[in-house]
Write a protein that binds this DNA or RNA. Structure first.
Lengths: 246, 246
DNA sequence: AACCGATGGTTCAAATATTGAACCGATTTA
DNA sequence: TAAATCGGTTCAATATTTGAACCATCGGTT
């Protein structure tokens, strides 16, 4: 792996839960030598991707990332464009909707929306990574990804995951019951870009105790419609169904 | 300069005006060898900071930057927190307000807001860089920056810039008349972080033909108030006036 | 006050990754 | 058809990165 790869890996250590890190801590959790780590950090800092805070000299993400994301959204309005649809989906179903994107082989949460009417909500964190093997979004994506096999095989629950994926292909949406989080039923559809490759997922996470056959139907139909809308908005097209009857 | 610095410099080539670049073009405008450039690009791409588009194989900013910026805003809500104040400032003055931030020795536009009532607006691009020597924001910042001298000396108009800075220190705001853009009068105040260092500027850009003594007064008072508000919001404090009478 | 174990940061020879001219095949232009 | 792009690759020469050991400093214990 090249030097810049190591530097960029350091950025992955910054999360919602841990937005600040000291030098030694970063060196430990990245496996890099302290001196190496320090050099990479200062190099990232000099470009504004990181900054050092007050007297503790901890590192956190810097203001340069704001420019990059503004440019990305201006060039490819992935997030902002999808937000209204996401909000509508949350309202229509009365549950939490969220959008995720495949980034460097991982599933990254991009955005989410709550239904205003519910007191009990399934809470989400954006800017975090979702495990492929334990989420409906993961299954929806794996069902339509080109080389999903290695990812599936690597999962701790490869068998049930495989079953979930087969089901997702058949029904058009993936479903998990209290898998990633207890008492949360999740439903997800894949999203596609202009080349027909699956690049993300749209999901609804519902509180399990509320679930009824009616709500199930409401969610799945609204979800499929919203998914098609976002895919269209991204200039995308669902892939041609292979093996369909003539 | 280290390798990661070169890689990060590549990111600077992506702008609002030029959001996509081919390999050869990037190599040329960065001065890097094509092979080197290609390696750096693929490394950036592997982490999702860049992505390659369709058949032309051009590079553009990737979805990973969205995660970084979401985390940054969650940890340090620079932009979102200031937006309401920025909008209020635009409405109160009837002109265009904008917010910029010092990033790696440059002045980066963070956000802007237009007044709804005006047909003629001073237009802004966010996610771009402002020249220190030709903008009110630049002068406001230089007036309160620790080691501003080298930047001032490097300016093509060091003398008039120096005068503008002295005036900014005295009045509490900086002013430029048709400097950066023709027929635009700009006003700016510095913003400070918790350590008392100047980290950005808040500005109002007004259409020169509209300018009257009344409007001038409206703008400067609203600007100073809004600046103090944002500084306070950022947990900042204006520096202690040195050399003030006892 | 001396000691301990942290912290952030620096040094420099040894090891390793980076570099760049030349090359390739594929398009596009003349 | 030929010349000139384009994106991408190769490999020996080279310059950069690496990491153990080293400071100085801090905060808590004994």
């Amino acid at each position: 792996m090249g030097t810049v790869g190591k530097a960029l890996d350091l950025l992955d250590l910054f999360t919602k839960a841990q937005p600040q890190h000291g030098l030694s801590h970063l060196a430990r959790s990245s496996g890099l030598n302290k001196a190496t780590c320090h050099r990479l950090l200062t190099e990232l800092e000099s470009r504004g991707l990181l900054e050092q805070t007050g007297p503790a000299r901890e590192y956190r993400l810097g203001p340069a990332v704001l420019r990059l994301s503004a440019l990305r959204e201006a060039a490819v309005p992935t997030r902002e464009a999808a937000m209204p649809i996401l909000r509508r989906l949350a309202e229509a179903t009365g549950e939490t909707a969220h959008l995720s994107h495949i980034v460097a082989g991982r599933l990254q949460t991009l955005a989410f929306a709550y239904a205003s009417r519910q007191g009990v909500r399934v809470m989400m964190e954006d800017a975090d990574f979702l495990p492929f093997h334990a989420t409906a979004s993961g299954a929806a994506v794996l069902a339509h990804l080109a080389d999903a096999e290695p990812l599936i095989a690597a999962a701790p629950n490869a068998d049930t995951l495989r079953a979930r994926i087969v089901e997702a292909r058949a029904k058009g949406y993936a479903e998990t019951l209290s898998t990633f989080e207890k008492d949360v039923n999740s439903f997800a559809v894949p999203l596609f870009d202009a080349t027909g490759t699956c690049t993300g997922a749209l999901a609804v996470a519902a509180a399990a105790p509320r679930m009824t056959p009616d709500l199930h139907a409401t969610i799945t139909t609204a979800l499929i419609a919203a998914g098609a809308e976002i895919t269209a908005l991204w200039g995308g097209q669902p892939p041609i169904r292979t093996g369909a009857p003539t």
